[in-house]
Computed example of a mutant assay.
Amino acid sequence: MYSKAETAKIRKDFWTAFGLYMKPVPNAEGYRTNWQNYKTGIKDIYFRMKAERGYASIGVEITHNDTELQQLYFEQFEEFKKILESELGEDWVWEMHVQDETGKIISRIQKILPKVNIMQKEDWPQIISFLKPRIIGLDAFWCNMKPAFEEL
């Protein structure tokens, strides 16, 4: 069992390691980016990466408080589903109006890697290898499709 401080340090160490690993990778436009804290530039649309005890995940979260606007954004992503999945090279799980860990209603598109644990350093390469190509794919998609979301 880990103390809160130990858990926080291990999480911080993981995300620092991920950031250092991704630092030399430019975004789709050729610029340096902060991959672990990716900014979409659109309010209430986030690219989230999680590494927990038992799984890692990456996804798009739409968190607008107005569920009708949230649905509009989600449907816009659905319009571009083939382009997104082409960039990612795989199918993801699409969920409209689900509760997140805090009970807030969100919509999300995500991929989960089960049976990994951020607390076990030997799982870090597998988690990083899972997250890296997917955040790069999301960035490539977003580089081309962001203008369609700016108009909403």
Rank of each mutant, 00 (worst) to 15 (best):
K39W: 06
F77N: 02
V116S: 08
F77W: 01
W15A: 15
L20E: 13
D100G: 09
F80R: 10
Y73N: 09
Y21M: 10
D44Y: 15
T33C: 12
G59F: 08
E78Y: 03
Y38W: 15
L20N: 07
F47Y: 12
Y55N: 03
E79V: 10
V116E: 05
E87T: 05
G30R: 00
E95N: 09
Y38K: 09
E87S: 13
R32W: 12
K12W: 13
E101A: 09
M49K: 12
I106T: 02
D44T: 07
R48C: 06
P125I: 07
E101Y: 08
A28M: 09
Q126A: 11
G89T: 08
T67K: 10
F74H: 02
I105V: 13
V60T: 10
I45V: 13
Y31E: 07
N65G: 01
G59P: 03
P114I: 01
S57I: 01
Q70S: 05
T67R: 11
Y31L: 07
P114V: 03
L84M: 09
N34F: 06
L84C: 05
L131M: 08
Y73L: 14
I109Q: 00
K39F: 09
K43P: 03
Q120K: 14
Y31S: 04
K111I: 09
M49S: 14
Q76A: 10
Q76W: 01
L113G: 12
L131I: 06
I45E: 11
L113T: 07
A17S: 12
V25F: 12
E79T: 13
Q120W: 09
W35D: 01
E85F: 06
L88V: 08
P114Q: 07
K43C: 02
N37R: 12
R32M: 13
K82M: 06
M49I: 13
